[in-house]
Design a protein around this nucleic acid. Structure first.
Length: 567
RNA sequence: GACCCGGUAGCUCAGCUGGUAGAGCAGUGGCCUUUUAAGCCAAAGGUCCUGGGUUCGAAUCCCAGCCGGGUCACCA
């Protein structure tokens, strides 16, 4: 590797010797993109006798006094033709023989000017009359080659692709396309909502009390306030406060954070759209989400029907609708509505589904549904009327208080949306939170916690409201036929490549390696040691080693250390 | 978290019945003025993930660890 970089550094020096700056401070005005040329040249070749475009040189094939290259810009690739006597009409052939042939390499970013023509073999090509180096590449790119749809030496190792996504984006054009579609999905939904009169809002990511979903949070610490904060697991409770505040319809594309495992459907941070509409209910919301997703699919892929992992999924409305208990009846034959806890537990155990000891009826129904029903629901399906036990923020049905006005959209066997008529009765909401607290006491770490301020907000009166959460990452997977969430996130979470033990527990708490080294020198090697020493003594000892630290800083470390040990 | 698979040149991979480390592409030098996975000739390129162990000798066998992927578990 170092050899290749050495060669390139060498090229760098030689360029400078020729008076060519390898990283010039210039603009390069372009007249076209690769895509425009490829699409429009046939129709009107005369208009392409003088074009300028810039991009990365992806392929360089030198054939003596003429060469071919491939230029890649943001939109695609086009072939370049370099001819010695066109580039160097006079005696001096340095520009071609030395600069182009020796010093410009695969991966360099260049600007070219020239005329568009078609080669003998029928490929639209730019005859380069002038080129400039815009930025030198010191590292070599992987070089996949492609012919007739077959790819050789593809850059496929997921680890490398995700860790160095920029390389992935350079050499795998379809990856760039996925993220363009992701952007289009978000823009389409945003425009749709704005057109319907929604207000786009932003709510806190750092929350003193986390809520709105069943999940384990990330914990952090605010030094000045001296308090624990959580990264939000949802923004639901804040958006509903805004409905209390008098907005009719609000939405937020929210990054949420959940401290759980990572797999092909889960990343610690993910994007969820939530929106709330006053004076509507979940029936209205069913129609609305059908319209929204049908419209989005059409806008992004052109049709309502998409292919996802060899399944055809059609977002054309109306979608199938089935009640929660009917769906269970359908796939298990079980009358879960009438069944008591013991019956459910027995059934689950018979099906070899692990049931936690603390499992309430709600938890068991959830298990039953996700194991036995969800996997069968491939086409977008609205499952409605969820049991109250599993829906602590949803309004009960008037004619059956064991059920709530809640529905989920299941698609390709996975939850895509979750929606309900929002519970706006503060007294009932308090009871539901208390039931959650009880679950928590029994060992359900994902049960919700009490949010007094939210209840107080409801006490001021919230209109009847319909709300919905939509997993943007999952929707993107569906609409781009991506098999994992990592494929639709630019930078999915990865373990650091360095050996984990290179960074000690202590350095995770302290953060500054220089300080850690001195701490270790005075015998503080573990987080526990930090707690055992008096802050002022530590300050003095560090001072002897020429490290001046504020006493508050040391107290922060100790707080952090305590938190670290507690988790 | 459990199990399975993988980690060898910049990239894709072979070598894994232990005996001096291989190919294609990329890179380097040379030839070639419409090629396209360009071609031909030549030379070069490596902590075989890390650390231990077995052995005269380990990329190869054993143990531990790290990183990734897959399946399952938990979750959206």
């Amino acid at each position: 590797m170092s050899r290749v970089i050495e060669d390139r550094l060498n090229q760098l020096q030689q360029l400078k010797a020729l008076g060519i700056e390898p990283f010039p401070s210039v603009t390069f005005p372009t007249t076209h993109t690769t895509k425009e040329i490829l699409e429009q040249w046939e129709k009107n070749p005369e208009a392409f006798n003088k074009v300028a475009l810039a991009g990365r040189l992806m392929v360089k094939r030198v054939m003596g006094k003429a060469s071919f290259g491939v230029l890649q810009d943001s939109w695609g690739r086009i072939q370049l033709y370099f001819n010695r006597d066109i580039l160097c009409p006079g005696e001096d052939k340095t520009l071609y023989n030395t600069v182009f042939k020796k010093l410009i390499a695969h991966g360099d970013i260049i600007g070219v000017e020239g005329r568009v023509f078609k080669t003998k073999t029928g490929e639209i090509t730019i005859e380069v009359q002038r080129f400039v180096l815009l930025a030198k590449a010191l590292r070599p790119l992987p070089m996949p080659k492609e012919k007739d749809g077959k790819v050789w030496d593809a850059f496929t190792d997921p680890e490398q692709r995700y860790r160095r996504r920029y390389v992935d984006l350079i050499v795998n054009p379809h990856v760039r396309e996925i993220f363009r579609k992701r952007a289009k999905i978000i823009q389409t939904i945003r425009n749709f909502l704005i057109q319907q009169g929604f207000l786009e809002v932003e709510t806190p990511i750092l929350q003193p009390i986390y809520g709105g979903a069943n999940a384990k949070p990330f914990v952090t610490y605010h030094n000045a306030l001296g308090m624990r904060l959580y990264l939000r697991i949802a923004n639901e409770l804040y958006l509903k406060r805004l409905i209390v505040g008098g907005y009719d319809a609000v939405f937020e594309f929210a990054k949420d954070f959940r401290n759980e495992g990572i797999d092909k459907y889960h990343n610690p941070e993910f994007t969820q759209l939530e929106f709330y509409v006053a004076y509507k209910d979940y029936r209205w919301m069913m129609d609305f989400i059908e319209r929204l997703l049908e419209y989005t699919a059409k806008a992004v892929v052109g049709t309502t029907s998409v292919t996802f992992q060899n399944q055809t999924i059609d977002f054309k409305r109306p979608w199938k609708r089935v009640s929660f208990y009917e769906s269970i009846q359908l796939y298990t034959g079980l009358d879960a509505y009438s069944a008591d806890e013991a019956t459910l537990r027995r059934y689950l155990e018979e099906q070899a589904i692990e049931v936690p000891a603390y499992a309430s009826k709600g938890v068991m129904l959830d298990l039953l549904f996700s194991k036995k029903v969800e996997p069968h629901l491939i086409q977008p399906t609205i499952v409605y009327d969820y049991p109250v036990e599993m829906s602590p923020l949803a309004k009960q049905k008037v004619d059956d208080p064991t059920l709530t006005e809640r529905f989920e959209v299941i698609c390709s066997g996975k939850e895509l949306c979750n929606a309900f008529s929002e519970l706006n009765d503060p007294i009932e909401q308090r009871k539901r939170f208390e039931a959650q607290l009880q679950l928590r006491r029994l060992g359900d770490e994902e049960a919700m916690v009490m949010d007094e301020d939210f209840i107080q907000a409801l006490e001021f009166g919230m209109p009847p409201t319909a709300g919905l959460g939509l997993g943007i990452d999952r929707l993107t997977m569906l609409l781009t036929d991506s098999p994992s969430i990592q494929e639709v996130l630019f930078f999915p979470q990865m373990r650091p490549k360095q050996k984990a033990d290179e960074e000690s527990e202590l350095s995770r708490v302290i953060g500054e390696e220089a300080v850690v080294a001195q701490l270790e020198a005075i015998g503080i090697r573990r987080v526990e040691d930090l707690l055992a020493i008096e802050p002022s003594v530590l300050q003095e000892k560090l001072q002897h080693r020429n490290i001046v630290v504020d006493l508050n800083q040391i107290r922060d470390w100790i707080r952090f250390a305590k938190r670290h040990l507690a988790t």
